[in-house]
Amino acid sequence: MGLLSFCLLSLLAIAGVDAAQLSLQSPRFTISSGDASQLRSEPISLKQRPEPLKLAPTDVLKLSFQVVEKDGEKGVQPHQTFLRFFDAVSGEEGIQPVRVSSSGKAKFELNMAKPPGSIPPTTAENPLNVSLLLGSFEHSPARYELFDLFLPASQSAPPHELEHTFHPQPLIHHTFRPEQKVPPRIISAAGAILVLAPWVVLVGFLAHIKPSVPQLLSINIFPFIATLGASEALLFWYWVDLKLGDVLLYGGVLALFTAAAGKKALATKGDLRVGRK
């Protein structure tokens, strides 16, 4: 397989070196006006460019040539034939395919009343460099510089419906709600008293009920109360300073102690309730 590929590549390389050259025979251009009167007609020299061609808005440019092998008179139909219109100033180009007959003869017509869309935008000052590109599987590619062509200046492109969106837009002004204000100090104080008043009611109730907690300080119950207080203190610390990860870590460790102390305290309390102790 490798040997076969090597042989094929070698043959292709040899064929490329020995490929015949393409040439043009009797290339000619004719410029006629809109009323079919001939304005200019000249053969094209492939060695020296003719005077630049100028087309009026209604003129017609006709181009004719025959593609032949360089060393003979045999007409050749290339696989690809293009006319290239290139604006050296703007750098824009347009490619126009050319139909070539099997005998190698080709005719191209450029009617300025209906210019093809592939022509690049033109100005009255800058000519288009027109060149012919020939491509063939059996021959070496060829490129011929034909002439310079002045075309009527292009009309300005109609504005696109979204064209205005590509211009600087007016500045966006965001409207924010006004900053919330802290109420006057005296109203805040009155509100604080209002919100704290239920504590007075709670203290009054506690004084009236007088709850008794005789086992609060016992060795079995107090650790539970202490760990509960520590949990609330940890949450307060979280509010003041700690990060979430810290409080979850500390809270997880504290939860183990709280659960153990709670189980012991509540078991003791349950035993007391049912009279086992």
Binding site: P183, L194, P198, L202, F205
Partner: peptide
């Protein structure tokens, strides 16, 4: 007693929010 305290505390906070400010 604790339930009454919680109810009064909630009512007072709600009144403060409506009458004064929620800020």
């Amino acid at each position: 007693a604790f339930l009454v305290f919680l109810m009064l505390s909630g009512i007072s906070q709600f009144l403060y929010c409506i009458l004064v400010t929620n800020f």
